[in-house]
């Protein structure tokens, strides 16, 4: 068969691994401040890894799409260093704070502009808002088959065969191409990208197309923002903790008593 053209959607977010103490909520400005570097959302990295594996087997081309108000190409170039062939940034001040439906709309416009594609991969959800909507809506907008929660993806005979995680185990499903698949972490971590590769890429001038709303139909009325009414730090979950002191033996004895009380 012909070599598959794969599109991977990748979102840039503050590192979700950052500990609790590095996240502050500004209630007045309704902002979350995360003291952590930007990374590619982990599930999107899984999606890219799945794409690279398909490319290793069948050849083809991987195009990464990333959208936002200010997308850092130093973060996104990691996708090229890992094995993607092209990167397109969808950047416009109007793209800030869009709700999921509008995000999917912008992505669908961009994908329609690319024209030829066989497979669209997204992460099952983004690591910041954890909504899990964009991939599924995007499939609806592109009017192509949609498979969620993939843990393994294979292409053969013009179809995509996916093992998707379901509550009782996994289900093997198949759809004709083009199709959209949302990828779960079971696919495997994105391969390591050596710094020397990243630096080599950063030094080399590489045209990275940036498409704004004007390039994508200029339909500003279609874009809607998230209507954030309030933002609060999480409720205090604290309880009065009784610290069990003493020697290990005493601690064990008292803890055993506590556990036995549960009966």
């Amino acid at each position: 068969m012909k070599e598959p053209q794969i599109i991977v959607c990748a979102k840039q977010i503050p590192d979700p691994e950052a500990p609790f103490s590095n996240v502050t909520v500004n209630v007045e400005k309704k902002q979350v401040l995360v003291d952590a570097p930007d990374v590619i959302s982990p599930y999107d990295e899984n999606a890219l890894e799945a794409a690279i594996r398909i490319k290793e087997e069948l050849g083809g081309k991987i195009t990464v799409l990333s959208m936002g108000r200010k997308v850092s190409d130093t973060v996104l170039r990691k996708t090229i260093a890992a094995g993607a062939d092209a990167l397109i940034l969808l950047e416009d001040p109007l793209f800030e704070g869009l709700e999921s439906n509008s995000v999917a709309y912008v992505l669908s416009c961009a994908i329609k502009k690319i024209v030829a594609y066989d497979l669209v991969l997204t992460g099952r959800q983004a690591g910041d808002w954890d909504s899990g909507q964009v991939g599924l809506i995007l499939a609806e907008m592109l009017d192509i088959p949609c498979i969620s929660m993939a843990r393994s993806i294979k292409i053969h005979d013009g179809a995509v065969v996916v093992e998707k995680t379901v509550p009782v185990g996994y289900e093997v499903v198949e759809a004709g191409l083009p199709a959209l698949v949302t990828v779960s972490n079971e696919v495997g971590e994105l391969r390591y990208v050596a710094r020397s590769k990243m630096l080599g890429l950063l030094r080399r001038p590489m045209p990275i197309p940036k498409w704004g709303l004007k390039d994508l139909g200029d339909n500003a009325e279609r874009l809607k923002k998230v209507q954030l009414m309030e933002l609060a730090p999480p409720a205090d979950m604290g309880r009065a903790c009784t610290i069990i002191e003493g020697s290990t033996d005493e601690q064990a004895a008292r803890l055993a008593a506590v556990l036995k009380e549960l009966r």
């Binding site: 691994e17 500990p19 094995g83 391969r191 390591y192 590769k197």
Partner: peptide, 28 residues
């Protein structure tokens, strides 16, 4: 490391942490 594929997951995470946070232990 250059190839990327043969790096064990834990080492992959450790090196990412080292790059982002200047230590191999915590993400901060």
């Amino acid at each position: 490391v250059e190839e990327g594929k043969g790096v064990p997951d834990l080492m992959n995470q450790t090196l990412e942490r080292l790059f982002n946070y200047d230590n191999p232990w915590v993400s901060s």
